[in-house]
């Protein structure tokens, strides 16, 4: 049963990765990237690596998403100014 859940999360991660690449809207893509981080958190936890899961939960879902969004916001403000 647990192997089934793990395989389902693997497939979800593949679909999410394709969606991140194929998306035209960059903020939408960042949100999908944070969802990808959440899926990999569950996967790390099921593979009994809670330390790595905690790191991924903070960095992959929190800090890196916000850094990407801030970068997009900076680029947008430059484009509007020109």
């Amino acid at each position: 049963m647990i192997g089934l859940i793990i395989l389902a999360i693997f497939i979800t991660l593949i679909v999410l990765a394709i969606a991140i690449i194929q998306n035209d809207d960059l903020p939408h893509s960042v949100v999908l990237f944070m969802g990808f981080g959440l899926g990999s958190v569950i996967l790390y936890f099921l593979f009994s690596a809670p330390d790595v899961a905690l790191t991924e939960a903070v960095i992959g879902t929190g800090v890196s998403g916000v850094v990407f969004l801030v970068t997009l916001l900076q680029i947008r403000s430059k484009e509007i100014k020109k």
């Binding site: 905690l54 903070v58 929190g62 800090v63 916000v66």
Partner: peptide, 17 residues
């Protein structure tokens, strides 16, 4: 328990964020 210096440090940094 799971966790440690790196994880806790990033959590404190996310509070400042």
């Amino acid at each position: 328990s799971p966790g440690g210096g790196f994880q806790g440090g990033v959590i404190i940094a996310s509070a400042f964020l």
